[in-house]
Amino acid sequence: MARVSPVRDRVPAPTPEELKRRRSRSIAIALALGALALLFYVVTIAKMGPQVLNRPL
């Protein structure tokens, strides 16, 4: 059976510049997802009203 060469043999390794850009994109995606999670939380509280927090522990 023919041996399939590993990915690293066929795809050039990312340059430092590409790694830097990938990192900045990852940070931006994380920030955007965090902001969306916060927005949906605040919207949920606004739609359901303050009573959503008033429950027996």
């Binding site: 050039p12 990312p14 590409e18 850009r21 990938r22 994109r25």
Partner: peptide, 8 residues
């Protein structure tokens, strides 16, 4: 599909 070169 090589890695993206795009910046934010």
């Amino acid at each position: 599909h090589p890695p993206s070169l795009g910046e934010v």
